[in-house]
Amino acid sequence: MKRAVLAFLLMAVAFYGPAGAEEKVAMGRKVYEKYCIGCHGEKGDGKGIAAPDLIVKPRDFTSGIYKFKTTPPGSLPRDEDLLRVIDQGLPLTSMPSFRLLPGPQKEALVAYLKSLSERWKRERPAEPLVREVKAPDFVGTPESVEKGRSIYNVRCAVCHGPSGRGDGPAGKNLKDRWGNPIRPANFTYGLINRGPRVEDIYLSITLGVDGTPMPSFASTLGEEDRWHLTSYILKLMGKIE
């Protein structure tokens, strides 16, 4: 009797226990076909039927390069980074938010996305460069803006333009890693792709945007300077006086 119960429990675990990696990928494929396939394409190469009409081209998952993440430049993103983009979408790009997808489906989707590139078999994502990030109090003060302005004019204006319209002399005819034409962010829209928090501006400066000409300034600028720069970008966005 006991043995029978034990066998039953074992079977139950086998059937209903945590899904195996392969099942998760298969489930993720179904989710992908329901929501993602139109833009990101059958093979996940970003060449879906809607892609030609989109200006910021959909991500090519087969390359294993991701733009918005918390890991150092060149590293793979962590699952949380992918989930964040699925959850929140990317402002000003055609990636909408899919926050109402049930949690297990999102996780399965991430598992599937990771199965699309060989890179995930060879490498592991690095530790995040920044974990908790919170804007210090001086961000947005006139002094901080002034300091940010001088850094901006040296480091950023060449691409993003002196007034932040993304029209700097070096910003023309840029191409991203996949060969698509790309323009530097125009701060006067008052919104950047990474997200709507002050910290998102800082993160973009710190981490850069992989696959695009936007470099990371983590090693070239001090932490405080990067926050000053954030202040000035807020000013260019019209968020502070």
């Binding site: 009409d53 989109l54 200006i55 402002p91 055609s94 909408p96 938010s97």
Partner: peptide, 11 residues
């Protein structure tokens, strides 16, 4: 702001 301009066009 929920969807971008080009998303709407493609849609």
């Amino acid at each position: 702001g929920r969807h971008s301009n080009d998303w709407h066009m493609a849609h």
